[in-house]
């Protein structure tokens, strides 16, 4: 129940970072973040405070984990559909690179 929005750090001045959220720039305070932040990093913003630095590699990792959850689909008519969708995903994945 906490609206959290990810954005990319453009610049840092002391405890304040200028962060880009889908093209909108906003100042975000760094008082409660638990690791060093540099321009280019992703931050999770909640009420104007960064609460987490999002490691870029974790985004790919999360998506890989979700695909793994799909991994073991077996049996039944639904299987064809899931396989079909996985095929689509593979195609989309290529375009994504």
């Amino acid at each position: 129940m906490c609206l959290g929005v990810p954005g990319r750090v453009l610049s840092i001045d002391g405890m304040i970072a200028v962060v880009d959220f889908w093209g909108v720039k906003k100042q975000v305070r760094l008082d409660v973040i638990d690791e060093p932040v540099v321009p280019g990093d992703y931050l999770l913003n909640h009420v104007g405070y960064a609460i987490r630095r999002i490691p870029p590699e974790d985004i790919a990792e999360t998506l890989a984990m979700y695909d793994e959850l799909l991994g073991e689909v077996r049996g039944g008519g639904d299987d064809l559909m899931a396989a079909d969708v996985r095929g689509e995903l593979a195609g989309a994945g290529k375009a994504d690179v």
Binding site: F21, W22, G23, V24
Partner: peptide, 11 residues
């Protein structure tokens, strides 16, 4: 896109 972004930020 900028309207969508502000909407996302402010809920």
């Amino acid at each position: 896109p900028d309207v969508r972004a502000v909407g996302e930020l402010l809920g």
